[in-house]
Design a protein around this nucleic acid. Structure first.
Length: 481
RNA sequence: GGCGGCAUAGCCAAGUGGUAAGGCAGCGGCCUGCAAAGCCGUUAUCCAUCAGUUCGAAUCUGAUUGCCGCCUCCA
């Protein structure tokens, strides 16, 4: 197995080789907790959740750090607006974040530190930068001296002199150079603060990641991730801080996920098209949301729309139906003795090894489902030992792949029952009345009164209820949408 | 102005040198009392346009057009 990762730093896919054999240390920038998380956060978190799951499945021991930025201008402003203190505000949104992520079946990171828990670490890094002449104090704030750090711009591929600094934002007159950025920000009256050698204040945005990543992962570690928008200036600044302070290479592989558009438009506050996770998981099955988010390559943009979500929902249903079918066919599934050479799992891993190509991996998953359905279609009566073995191999692989993508985590029966309950609520129907009609139809069918049977079917269909006559009886489900 | 990305069927989307995965929708068929589900077949002589490299390109190179992102808080 050779995993190749597209490294933003080198603009190439590179063979992944961890710093310590068998271990992966990764750091992903988490949210600033001043508002509800949106579908864009979901993409980033789900993508890196899958990355971590895949590494673990490949046998690596993964240390995954994802931070919470819990002190920052936006938090201060929002808290003021709401008449809250910053601690309660950030706590509220951290809890909401967890709730959203649990709903999305996201596994917790190994460590989830908060900036405010590491003020000492942050100050130590700033102190080191001061000592090295890479930082300076000016008017109560401490700035990073970009001119003294060689290689500033290497991640984002831009040269300081090319950037029209201050073109869109007024340059802080206290900076020596427009590119310099704040490491420590002095507190204005009424703002939360921590004591420091430079006076009362709070950390700048970028420094927390340098401090916490070195604390938990070391000064050099394997993977650093986040949304594409963080490449500049956030990650560029992190590199400057960490490499400046520690004199060692910072993250070795940089992974950046693309944006989520809403109906082909950029999601932004001004357009008022923010899609919040808690609303999305109400409208669609959380695993459908994951399937949707993983249906494009992680670096490409993805378009959130009702149609795309609907399709993801249909796709998920098809997967559950296949698992359900296997479960009904097989009483139990022993570990397959000799799995096929080119099995699904191997093919899935090949896709994942190519820069976490989940879109291709999902294609392989469906390929497997079709093959499996074909096998089961062709089977009459009892399965031969050979077929049984094959089906078991498919079943195991499909669920294993589901385990990486974070889908198919429910028992099919639970999934379908849940869909029903939800559908009934949405359409304001009762299961009793539906089952009564199905029973009437059953009688009509026994009497070979096809006209009546079809009338009832049509009646139910108008109520968005779809029937499925199976050998064991009639199943029903609520039509999607 | 600088930097970067993308353009593949009706729609979504893989494929990045060896002759177009997969999903949704459509059509034909099998199955079914009829359906549904599932399966089979079919649906791009061709991958924005033009030129070039190559035995061979959607895949590499150059140009053109269109779209998008970043350079400001942002996943």
């Amino acid at each position: 197995m050779t995993l190749r990762i597209y490294n933003t730093l080198t603009h190439r896919k590179e063979i992944f080789a961890p710093l310590s054999p068998g271990r992966v240390r990764m750091y992903v920038c988490g949210p600033t907790v001043y508002d509800s998380s949106h579908i864009g956060h979901a993409r980033s978190v789900v993508v890196f959740d899958v990355v971590a799951r895949y590494f673990r499945a490949c046998g690596y021991e993964v240390t995954y750090v994802r931070n919470f930025t819990d002190i920052d201008d936006k938090i201060i402003n929002r808290a003021r607006e709401l008449g809250m203190d910053t601690v309660s505000l950030s706590e509220k949104y951290i809890q909401e974040f967890y709730k959203d992520m649990d709903a999305l079946n996201v596994q917790r990171a190994t460590l989830e530190p908060r900036a405010t828990q590491h003020i000492d670490d942050i100050q130590k890094v700033i102190q080191t930068l001061m000592e090295k002449g890479l930082a300076y104090e000016s008017g109560g704030d401490v700035f990073f001296r970009v001119s003294r750090f060689d290689g500033y711009g290497k991640l984002s591929g831009r040269k300081p002199e090319d950037m029209l600094a201050g073109a869109r934002v007024e340059v802080d007159q206290r900076k020596e150079n427009p590119m310099d950025f704040v490491l420590w920000k002095s507190a204005k009256p009424g703002e939360p603060f921590w004591d420091s050698p430079w006076g009362k204040g709070r950390p700048g945005w970028h420094i927390e990641c340098s401090a916490m990543s070195s604390r938990f992962l070391g000064e050099t570690f394997d993977i650093h991730g986040g949304g594409k928008d963080l490449i500049f200036p956030h990650h560029e600044n992190e590199i400057a801080q960490s490499e400046g302070a520690f004199g060692k290479p910072f993250a070795r592989y940089w992974i950046h996920n693309g944006f989520v558009n809403i109906n082909k438009e950029k999601m932004s506050k001004s357009l008022g098209n923010f899609v919040i996770i808690k609303d999305v998981v109400k409208a669609y099955h959380p695993e459908a949301v994951r399937l949707f988010l993983l249906s494009n390559h992680y670096r490409s943009p993805i378009d959130f729309s009702d149609q795309n979500m609907q399709e993801a929902g249909n796709a998920l249903e098809k997967l559950y139906a296949a698992v359900n079918r296997m479960d009904e066919t097989l009483e139990n599934c022993p570990e397959p003795s000799n799995p096929p050479e080119d099995d699904l799992w191997t093919r899935f891993c090949d896709a994942m090894d190519d820069d976490f190509n989940t879109a291709q991996g999902i294609g392989i998953l469906f390929d497997g489902v079709r093959t499996l359905n074909r096998i089961l279609d062709e089977q009459q009566g009892l399965l031969s030992e050979e077929t049984r073995n094959l089906v078991c191999s498919y079943r195991r692989d499909i669920l294993k792949i589901g385990g990486i993508l974070g889908i198919l985590s429910q028992a099919p029966a639970v999934y379908f029952e849940g869909k029903k309950t939800e559908g009934l609520e949405k359409k304001s129907l009762s299961a009793d009345s539906i089952e009564k009609l199905i029973n009437d139809r059953k009688q009509a069918r026994i009497n070979r009164n096809w006209a009546e049977a079809d009338r009832i079917r049509k009646l139910l269909e108008d109520m968005n209820v779809i029937l499925e006559d199976r050998p064991g009886g009639t199943l029903w489900k609520i039509k999607n949408s």
